[in-house]
Nucleic acid binder design. Structure first.
Lengths: 143, 143
DNA sequence: ACTTTTTTAGGAATGGTTATTGATCGAAAG
DNA sequence: CTTTCGATCAATAACCATTCCTAAAAAAGT
């Protein structure tokens, strides 16, 4: 939800009850450095460069903890591997199903649908995700 | 997008270039009969009752064709198997991550994200999907 | 320092989905 | 009708993202 400076990260871990281990920190750092929306595998490779001993399973587990805490967001596009993003400013992402590139949609005011949904259901909403797909201008030329 | 009566189904198949085979028809029928959002496996079992010879792979293939044509919609919740729904009136679905039940959120006017997004991007938008998850009233009692 | 609980590495196992292949079907032409 | 030829199908094997398992290590609690 926020820019996640050091103190916020610590605070959110403290409140969650999970411990902020070096592996979880490394996964978060890797996501911070990443341009785009890496898959678990890509995060794993990035983390491995600094600490060759981390296991892929650990990265998966760290990602799921970070998602549960709310520090990162998982995007499930129609193509399989789940992709992760730092949970910073709300924004809309669109993915080209031909070339795979993910872009942010600029100039579109973000509508906090999560808030509106909370007002309209007795459910306790824990997660919302808007997936948008299409063909980017370049790939449209194939038509 | 619409109620998909017989003639619409034929028309959409005709325009797509795909042929309306008995298997694809059976998959569509199964979805029509289904309450809720079946997985490919569940659709397969339903189709199998009427035609024991169909293969699971055929169901997957039919589902992907039907999705491409726009007759059905695929929902990718955080829990793995993809679930399918007839593409009828736009609506919001919420899924309880504890008991797995999917419910429609009533009384919430659907805002056509796709239309607003199309106006704000050079992409050709082919698919939008809003995934909402939380804990239903019953499962909240576990807290 | 000792005990308990949580986390990790490493690797094997799972399970949803895709790919493969040979057989079969179906529209279009002769 | 038949023949042709591409599309579709059933069955099964392969794939691969993710989860599970276990012993060891680390962290937290006392």
């Amino acid at each position: 939800m926020i820019g996640s400076p050091e103190s916020d990260v610590r605070e959110m871990f403290r409140r969650s009850g999970y411990t902020l281990t070096s592996q979880r920190r490394a996964v978060l750092d890797a996501l911070q450095d990443f341009k785009g929306h890496p898959s678990a595998e890509e995060v794993y490779l990035a983390v491995k460069k600094k600490n060759p001993k981390v296991a892929l399973g650990t990265v998966y587990q760290a990602l799921s903890v970070l998602e549960e805490i709310g520090l990162i967001e998982a995007k499930r596009w129609s193509e399989s591997p789940v992709r992760y993003d730092l949970n910073t400013e709300p924004h809309y992402d669109i993915r080209c199903t031909r070339c795979g590139k993910v872009a942010e949609i600029p100039g579109l005011k973000f509508d906090d649908f999560a808030a509106r949904i909370r007002e309209n259901t007795p459910y306790k909403v824990t997660n919302t995700s808007l997936v948008i797909e299409g063909h980017c201008p370049v790939c449209q030329m194939e038509d």
